[in-house]
Design a protein around this nucleic acid. Sequence first.
RNA 1: GGGCCGUUAGCUCAGCCGGUAGAGCAGUGGAUUUUUAAUCCAUUGGUCGCGCGUUCGAAUCGCGCACGGCCCA
Length: 496
Amino acid sequence: MSDTDENDLVAQRRQHLQELRKSGNAFSNKFRRDSLAADLIEQYGEKSKEELEQNPVKVAVAGRMMTRRIMGKASFAHLQDMSGQIQLYIRRDDLAEGVYNEGFKKWDSGDIIGATGIVMKTNKGELSIHVDSILLLTKSLQPLPEKFHGLTDQETRYRQRYVDLIMNEETRNTFKIRSQVIEFIRSYLKDVGYIEVETPMMHVIPGGATARPFMTHHNSLDMDLFLRIAPELYLKRLVVGGFEKVFEINRSFRNEGLSARHNPEFTMLEFYQAYADYEDLMNLTEEMLRKLTLAIGGSNEIVYQAETYDLSRPFDRMTVLESILKYNESISLDDLQSLDTIRKLAQQLGIPLEDSYGIGKIQIEIFEKTVETRLLAPTFITQYPTEVSPLARKNDDDPFVTDRFEFFIGGREIANGFSELNDPEDQAERFRKQVAEKDAGDIEAMHFDEDYITALEYGMPPTAGEGIGIDRLVMFLTDSPTIRDVILFPHMRNKS
RNA sequence: GGGCCGUUAGCUCAGCCGGUAGAGCAGUGGAUUUUUAAUCCAUUGGUCGCGCGUUCGAAUCGCGCACGGCCCA
């Protein structure tokens, strides 16, 4: 796109613009529309040609001219606005002198125009506007992609999302649904008593997850800062402060590779509720997702990548160990509970092991390798090992595991939640273990957050919390195979 | 990080056993007062991703790089 000035098509359009500048304001902002394409079709689309002729309705529309068919003294054009498209029927003799030949016929597809006229039906039955005045509002200098095949090159679709949005209704739809999903969640949580908050994105100590952070620097304070990897520890500070039901929907950042499921910045919902446990949140999640799918698509059945998912049925629930046994017939419970045998098992599965890995960590490695992608139907996996859950409350009966769950659908992790660890001494001990792992070379291990411990020492009520990956949820609801399809401007390498 | 595939006109794509690059759409000129991938006639448009090599000759073969896609870790 750097050679735009050398492109003939652009040069021609620049020439058109020069001529427009001579004859007046080439970027007029005086025109006001009173109707959107989709509303007109909704309101008048079912009416007959004769009905519309007998009761003429005058409207003003504006948008981008997507196609144009000139047939001598009459033309058709399709106008696209934020709601959809509507056809214009334009006759030379209905317009002011010269507008048709000196104006309209010299405009280009992609130009932004405004038009007024009477709602009509063509002989072929398409609702249209019989135009009586038409005005160029913005000159488009870049030619649009081809009208039939559109823009299909994935790289261009991501790098120049604006062109993708102009050309592909599917893309527009995906992002409208994304907006609806967030809107629904927001109002759902507010309806059950949550308040929305915003916590820092720049952290002195990156916490709340095990991940590599991005670093930045505050110049006047001469201080290194980290972009947050999760809002968790700040949200729980708010629970200590008495905000007993809080949520935040916003970006977190993780300095990791890119994939169909990973973008360095991504959107998470995190919510925390005092006097609740992880089972309460599983129930809330199940109900919220059920209502969400109904609100978005009018059905609990979701088709994702040719598989149909029915969210009206109760979601499956099983423990980590149960799920490993279910999907690995050759593995026994005893195998998973002895360090010697589980290490051998992991090695047989080709899982690279560090000396520091305990039984719990290896169980999760085996789970991720052999179970995760097979969890197609909506499933809560529970009882994650304490070793891999440094912020979660230990199970009262079995301190080897925590009262934690992750939610899977379509073989993909969507959510992670647990009863929160609110014992400050236990939490301090867990942090110390993380720091030891960090010192041993685990770059993803957590820091010791003293202020967070202090907050817990003031007393955090028994609380449950959860994070839901909004991007992945939207992928599922929009049948998108990669996360780039649900992020407006996904991260890309610099092009040359 | 590894494997495979791709990168040619504004867009969508052919061409690839080496011989000076093509189509459709868009654009331009002409015809056309109900078309809708409008139609008909004519026509413009290219550093074939970048670099190096092989060769008399490279879009085409080889190597390297960049970017993208899919799969794997």
